[in-house]
Structures are given as structure tokens and as C-alpha cells.
Design a protein around this nucleic acid. Structure first.
Lengths: 191, 191
DNA sequence: CGAGGCCTTGACCGCGGTCAATGCCCGTGG
DNA sequence: CCACGGGCATTGACCGCGGTCAAGGCCTCG
């Protein structure tokens, strides 16, 4: 059972998911394919699913003053979804496939109700949200009181896969700097 | 029972906490007082407690290049603690009382083990982490691709209590700008 | 009354944004 | 096979936002 393995990888092999959970999940989960450029979730719309990304890359972004501002990138074996949708509200962000993608789609409502009944599920969810919060904290540290060069070097050191798989235009937005500045920074480093 | 009321305020009166939870909590929770300037949690130290702030104000900050950089402020009826300590690691931040404070202190270990057994506790924790993640997301939007004036106006509109209770030096750091820039921005707004 | 904390103001300048032109790579069609 | 066009990155010129340094004002407290 795929999902079971997946969760055990994170939480250790002693994690035992209830049979009822696995049964419900296997019927609620659907494997979907998306092509490069497809938008899975649209800003402003309620989207009652979240995804486990098995293959490909996704970016999350929103519009401000006609500019796309990028929140994060996700690749293989990461969870993707809108926190707002988790609470029944419209997503504040759009999610676009940067590559062809294969995802497992989960129904949020079904998951939420399981989470209210099954303590293991509740703790698994907990674990992932905590991870996400820590990611956001790290990111804040990169943006608050740090100059462009330092932000870039952080990616080089801690998120080097972005350099391989993300266009520089997106990376610049993610870093909160302009395309041009990123370009100049990279040149300074090579020399 | 105070803690019960407290949680019901958040989750609605239909939330029923198990008697065993309440019993454990009332013995694990301690009410503490701190004076202005006291440091509750020190950067780099493991701190196995978190707090519910009943009275006063706390700031979270860390040192970078000898500068204190402020993460957030907390006031009445907010939860305060280090996410890293939740995972058994040392705190990356210090927590200082900006005013005299009254807190309820909880033992993280005890809470965690309850969370593994009691599904209501697990879901309550879930709720608060989710809230925290949304706060962090909002904050990221303020720092990424936004200029100083906009950052300040966001506080004026959404976090006006900070203007009353936080020294401008701290507020500037929170906004990721210098004291002087904040001062000039405020003058521009008055005129 | 003096000292220290906090905020404001001024002078200066460098980082990084904007605008515009150019280069490079690649897919498509003649 | 080459020509063209589009997408993306680079480079240059310019300049304004915001940082740093330093001085001065104001309030509180000893």
C-alpha cells in the first residue's frame, strides 16, 4: 500500500495506520497527471483537494500589482495544497506545474473527518504542518534584514535543486529580488 | 476550569476535552509571573515548556551580525513557545518580556504524550499550528517584494495594537527596516 | 540637574529596482 | 538546412529607496 509506505518513511516504521483509514484513503485518493503549464489551483477559488507530488515540479504564486510573486517550489515527495482551502476558504495562491507532473490527489473533507476520528492521522497531519511552519520560519529569516547576495547563497547551500530545475526569473521572485539583480549576483560569484 | 474555557473560546462550546486530559493539565500547568526585561527562553537552549500569555507582552528575536532581529510580538491570549523545542531541539530564538507578564506554563513532553493519546488534544494542537502557519504566510507577503511604507501601513491596518505597545525600534526590526526609515515614514504619513 | 533611553532629523551613498537593448538557445516552418 | 520568432538571461545606464553614521531633541528617572 503506497500511502502507507509513504507515511512510514516520514514517521518511522512503528507508525500503524488503522485499516479503516487505509480503506478510506485508497478510495479517496486518485492518481492524476498534469502537463507542464497546467494550473492545478487558481488564486481566489476554493479547491477541496490537496496533493502528494510524486513526479515533477510545482510553483505557488500570487498576483500583486500585476506581478507574479512566488511563494515556494515543490518537487518529488512533497505535499502541495492551500492552507486556506484546509479551512474551507478560497486559495490565496495559484499552483502551476513547471514540469509534467504526477500527483496523488486527496479529498480534504474526507481527510479532515478522518483526522477527527483517527488519532494517528491527526498526528501525521500535525507533523506535516509543523514541518511547513518551520519552512516558513526559515524563509522569513532569509527575507527579513538580509541582502540579495545572502538570499541567493542560502539557496545555493540549502536548496540547490532549485538552481537546476527552476528558471532564474522564478528564482528571483522567490528571493524577493529582480531578475536583473539575480543575474548580476551570479556573475559576481563566478568571477 | 480555566484551560477548558480557554480552548472552548477557540473551538466552540461543543468541544469536549477528556477528563483525563484536564486532570493531567491542571497538574502540569503552572501560572508564572515575569518582570519586564526578563528572558523566558534563550536562543540556543532547549526549553521544554510553552506558554499561554494571560497578561503582558513578549517579543521573539534572534541575533544576526550582532543585531537583534525580531520575529513577532505576542500579547494577551496568545500562545508563546519555540517550535524547535517542540521537536526536542534548541530554540533558535530568545523570548523577552516587554512588559510584566503572567503566563500559564505547559510541559511540552506531557502535552506531546497526551497528544498521542487524546484525539481532541491532537486536533486542538493542529488548530493552533495551522493558525501559526497562516500568520507566517501573511508575514512573508509583507516582506517579499514590498517596500517600507507598505509594510508599515499593513501594521497600522492589521496589527494596530503594536503601535501602542511596542517601541518603534522593535517595530522597525519586525518590519525589516531601520529605525530611521520608520521614523521618516511616520512623518510622511502625518503630513 | 545630569544621565540614559528612545526617537527624530540631516547628510551621504550604495544596493537594488526600472527601462531598454542585446545575446543566446531552441522549436517551428519555409 | 537555414531563417525567423519567442522565451529567457545578461548587460548597461540611470536613479531613488532605504541603510549608515552622526548629531540633536525630548522624556523619564535617579
Amino acid at each position: 500500500m503506497e500511502i502507507n509506505d509513504l507515511i512510514k518513511n516520514y514517521l518511522g516504521n512503528d507508525t500503524v495506520l488503522s485499516p479503516s483509514f487505509l480503506a478510506e484513503m485508497s478510495e479517496a485518493a486518485v492518481v492524476l497527471s498534469f502537463k507542464k503549464g497546467e494550473i492545478i489551483i487558481k488564486e481566489g477559488e476554493f479547491h477541496p483537494y490537496f496533493y502528494f507530488l510524486q513526479q515533477g515540479g510545482i510553483r505557488s504564486y500570487y498576483l500583486a500589482n500585476g506581478l507574479e510573486i512566488i511563494n515556494w517550489f515543490a518537487f518529488e515527495n512533497e505535499w502541495v495544497g492551500s492552507i486556506q482551502s484546509t479551512q474551507g476558504a478560497a486559495s490565496r495562491d495559484s499552483f502551476e506545474c513547471m514540469e509534467d507532473c504526477k500527483c496523488i490527489r486527496f479529498d480534504i473533507q474526507k481527510f479532515k473527518s478522518l483526522q477527527k476520528e483517527d488519532i494517528v492521522v491527526a498526528n501525521v497531519v500535525n507533523f506535516f504542518i509543523e514541518e511547513f511552519a518551520i519552512f516558513l520560519e526559515d524563509r522569513l529569516r532569509q527575507l527579513q534584514h538580509r541582502e540579495a547576495m545572502d538570499r541567493y547563497l542560502y539557496v545555493v547551500e540549502h536548496e540547490p535543486e532549485y538552481l537546476q530545475r527552476v528558471p532564474l526569473t522564478y528564482l528571483a521572485s522567490y528571493l524577493g529580488i529582480s531578475r536583473e539583480t539575480l543575474s548580476r549576483i551570479r556573475r559576481r560569484i563566478i568571477s
